[in-house]
């Protein structure tokens, strides 16, 4: 396929030959849907059946990896344990909604949380509360009461920082009152296609504009308001297949990874991006350059937008 060939050339260090990369822009790096990667992913959230209308002990001491298979210290990294109840959605619908980031607050019919201030690895349902209202286990956690999703998160901001998750399924026939949350690696099933995208050409202007992007990597309408970060990665001696095959470690694989928090809008100045104390000053090297727009508040960790950049010849 033409695009694959073109990208293959690009990855071997020959710039400016990919689709969309045959002209050097005079203005900012202008991103469009054709530049975006394709991501197909689904969540396979484990289900733990418990007794209904009874208090349940929750233990997350075995959560040593999150859904991106990154290492987790269950005591130090899990700050909030939340239980969300969806009144009218099935487990499958919740999984699909989490994957596509389109669940609404009104889908939820209850939320309680436990703040892990003591850096422990266990709590109980009855210890959870929200706005001062504790959960009445006997009436609120029952078979047929809805779909119950347990979220373990880093940080205390609701909806941000989920590391792993599990469905709790109260059943009258069950006597189980102990939930052991499994490690998150494997919950997220995905494929990332970076071969089919058109790389974005880069000129002298080190600003980027994504106002023309309409869809995210899953083909859903992109919500610019959710974009709150930009990553600019340089991958020395790596191929696109390497990155695709280890997509969840996109950040750790980078030779140099610049990041830039975004507060809104559809453009950014790349010279504000930093890698530690190192400020991005321009494109250089023979490796791959990747640009991603990220969403820290999305349950699906896949970047809504990700593309490869074609620096000008001789950069």
């Amino acid at each position: 396929m033409r695009t694959e060939i073109a990208l293959g050339l690009l990855f071997s260090g020959c710039s400016g030959t990919g689709a969309g990369a045959d002209s050097v822009p005079t203005g900012p790096i202008t991103l469009a849907d054709a530049n975006n990667y394709h991501f197909s992913g689904s969540l396979n959230v484990p289900v733990v059946t418990t007794a209904s209308a009874r208090d349940v002990a929750i233990d997350w001491g075995q959560v040593t990896q999150d859904i991106q298979c990154h290492t987790v210290d269950p005591a130090a990294d899990i700050d909030t344990v939340g239980l969300v109840r969806f009144g009218a959605l099935t487990q499958a619908q919740v999984q699909a909604g989490l994957s596509s980031n389109d669940l609404q607050q009104a889908d939820m019919s209850g939320y309680v949380q436990y703040q892990n201030d003591a850096a422990g690895t266990s709590t109980t349902l009855s210890a959870m509360s929200f706005f001062g209202t504790p959960v009445d286990v006997t009436s609120e956690y029952v078979q047929g009461g809805g779909t119950y999703l347990l979220l373990l998160a880093t940080g205390t901001t609701p909806g941000v920082g989920a590391r792993t998750l599990a469905f709790l399924d109260p059943e009258d026939a069950s006597t189980n009152t102990a939930v052991t949350v499994a490690s998150g690696c494997g919950v997220l099933q995905f494929t990332a296609d970076l071969h089919s995208l058109s790389s974005a050409p880069v000129g002298a202007d080190l600003s980027v504009d994504w106002s023309g992007v309409t869809a995210d990597g899953q083909g859903n309408p992109i919500d610019d308001a959710k974009i709150d970060g930009l990553l600019l990665g340089y991958y020395e001696g790596q191929t696109v297949a390497d990155i695709e095959g280890d997509f969840l470690n996109l950040e750790s694989r980078a030779t140099t990874l610049y990041s830039l928090p975004l507060t809104g809008g559809t453009s950014a100045d790349l010279t504000l991006a930093t890698a530690g104390t190192q400020v991005f000053t321009g494109f250089s090297g023979d490796g791959l350059w990747m640009l991603a727009l990220t969403c820290s508040r999305c349950y699906n960790p896949a970047p809504p937008f990700l593309t490869l950049l074609t620096p000008p010849t001789g950069a």
């Binding site: 609404q104 939820m108 909806g159």
Partner: peptide, 28 residues
């Protein structure tokens, strides 16, 4: 205003929804 459920409805006396706003999960 369903407040922490992130939905506000304007309804007619007959109960028909004339206007509705919803927030994404995590906000109310």
């Amino acid at each position: 205003d369903f407040a922490v459920s992130g939905e506000i409805d304007r309804v007619t006396p007959a109960g028909a929804v004339a206007w509705r706003v919803n927030t994404a999960l995590g906000y109310g």
